[in-house]
Write a protein that binds this DNA or RNA. Structure first.
Length: 206
DNA sequence: CGGAAGATCCACT
DNA sequence: GTGGATCTTCCGA
């Protein structure tokens, strides 16, 4: 398995361009001697200032979302609902606030370790391990300590893998952003069609 | 300083 | 399908 990291230039493009290009790539996490690999199957783009669903909406800048304004190629990790961590890849130029939320992955290596970290039994259904942004983070042991880290680092990176062709990509509105007004309907969610590890069945059409 | 909301998940009906 | 868990963060007073 080829685990060479994507170059940081990959992320210095708009989030809505990076998000579909990340599906099929390999998210790699090193924990001690163990190497965990998730094949990304679902992502969402967040556009920054003009996007009411983004943590950077209106240029909002707080200690919590500071790393969202780093140049593309950094991790943005945030805590939500009092118990969950979520992992993003910052995109574009510094101070733009664009990012891609990594929503779901398919275990390729280290599945037993991921199951253990998720507190699951031996037999699980697809999607239980990393079929959701908080599940993905928990399976890989991602927390605040990785906020602001570079995505070609020693403990966390995204490898080239093989991007999923447009034909196999489903596209639709993002999950959990009903509060975002018009932006709630923007089709910025991308998932591999018919992949059972996706957090929810792909949108009917689009 | 209080209150409200949140890029979610899980158990239960 | 619905509601509860759980707590950090932020904003307004």
């Amino acid at each position: 398995m080829d685990l060479d990291p994507l170059p940081l230039a990959f992320y210095r493009r708009p989030a809505e361009v990076v998000a579909p290009d990340l599906v099929g790539r390999l998210l790699v996490r090193r924990l001690g001697r163990k190497t965990l690999v998730l094949r990304l199957v679902e992502t969402e783009a967040y556009l920054g200032a003009p996007d009411r669903a983004s943590h950077a909406a209106g240029g909002r800048r707080t200690p919590r979302n500071e790393s969202l304004y780093l140049p593309g190629g950094h991790a943005y990790v945030y805590f939500v609902y009092g118990m969950h961590w979520c992992l993003n890849a910052v995109c574009g130029e510094a101070d733009e606030g664009g990012a891609v939320l990594l929503r779901a992955g398919e275990p390729l290596r280290g599945e037993a370790e991921m199951r253990a970290r998720r507190g699951l039994a031996d037999r699980v259904r697809p999607g239980d391990i990393a079929g959701g942004p908080a599940k993905l983070a928990q399976a890989l042991g991602v927390d605040r300590s990785l906020d602001g880290a570079l995505l070609d680092g020693r403990d966390l990176w995204i490898a080239t893998g093989e991007p999923v062709g447009r034909r196999r990509l489903a596209r639709g509105p993002r999950i959990g952003v009903a509060y975002a007004g018009e932006a709630a309907a923007w089709p910025l969610r991308f998932a591999e069609r018919d992949n059972l590890h996706v957090s929810r069945p792909p949108p009917p059409r689009a």
